[in-house]
Design a protein around this nucleic acid. Structure first.
Lengths: 145, 145
DNA sequence: CGTACTCTTTTGAATGATTCAAGAAAAGGG
DNA sequence: CCCTTTTCTTGAATCATTCAAAAGAGTACG
């Protein structure tokens, strides 16, 4: 399915800014608004940062993007394409890697909370050292065994 | 063990500001620097916000406090007293509740990452509705069954 | 108990990310 | 093709946090 349809189906108007913002996030993954602005400005000279913030908020609200915050850093955005994954953050370079959720699904639904609390999501963030920063040879994509 | 010793043992000088900042966090739990400043100012009129930020950073670096960020909000601090717990955030009131880690320990050590990635921590954040916001009767402390 | 050295705090300003507000532009139904 | 409503641009404001330099306070030592 293409972006334009997805945006329209969400009840939002299809604008160049929105398409460009979505594309920027899709290509880079885990990007801040500032980085998205830079990417988008390359395609649409003169975009305002406000437009980027608005698009990111709208697309996130429509469920097309997902937002996460790592420590005190700026908010990062990613597409919800292949959902059901967690994140690994390197303590040194701060890069965020996707980690496929394996048996976690089981783990998550096992969770019970007392007295009227309703859980609808569990977000797992792993921390440590990525292959590069740990002094390893190559950097491949990360995955749970 | 008391705060003063803990601070000294960490190789830091024992100052009124540090003690007051630690106490403020211990009493309130999951508080922002701004709130800590208000609390501390009640005891030590004239404290600077910079001192609070410095103390929070120093105590966190010393391992006496733990820092977390919820969504795009300001950083929150908590004591590491009874470690090994996760967090539940209410989607409505944004209150953060501690969730005791039960069988999660097993879950965590099961995690394997490919190609030289080293994991040393797993942080779990649950989201949903707290007893109050879900429309329930009473609010008790939260815990995993 | 006081001195000296170093670490902390105060003071005041600066930065970065995000949001607010009002008018101009553009999407899309009719 | 026009009209209505949404979205974008412009420009300023806010909040949390950090930077820098000088004043102040803790602690080891005599």
């Amino acid at each position: 399915m293409d972006v334009r349809s997805a945006i329209r189906d969400a009840g939002l108007r299809v604008t160049r800014q929105r398409v460009a913002v979505f594309d920027a996030v899709r290509v880079r993954q885990h990007v801040s608004a500032t980085v998205v602005l830079a990417e988008v400005a390359a395609v649409l000279p003169g975009v305002s940062h406000q437009a980027v913030y608005d698009c990111l908020a709208d697309l996130t609200g429509a469920g097309l993007l997902r937002r996460l915050t790592i420590d005190g850093g700026p908010m990062l955005y990613e597409t919800r394409a292949h959902d059901n994954h967690d994140h690994f953050v390197c303590r040194i370079c701060n890069t965020v890697f996707d980690v496929d959720t394996a048996s976690d699904t089981t783990f998550r639904s096992d969770v019970q909370i007392a007295d009227g609390f309703v859980i609808d999501e569990a977000e797992v963030t792993y921390r440590g050292f990525c292959a590069d920063c740990a002094g390893s040879r190559r950097v491949t994509d990360i995955a749970i065994a």
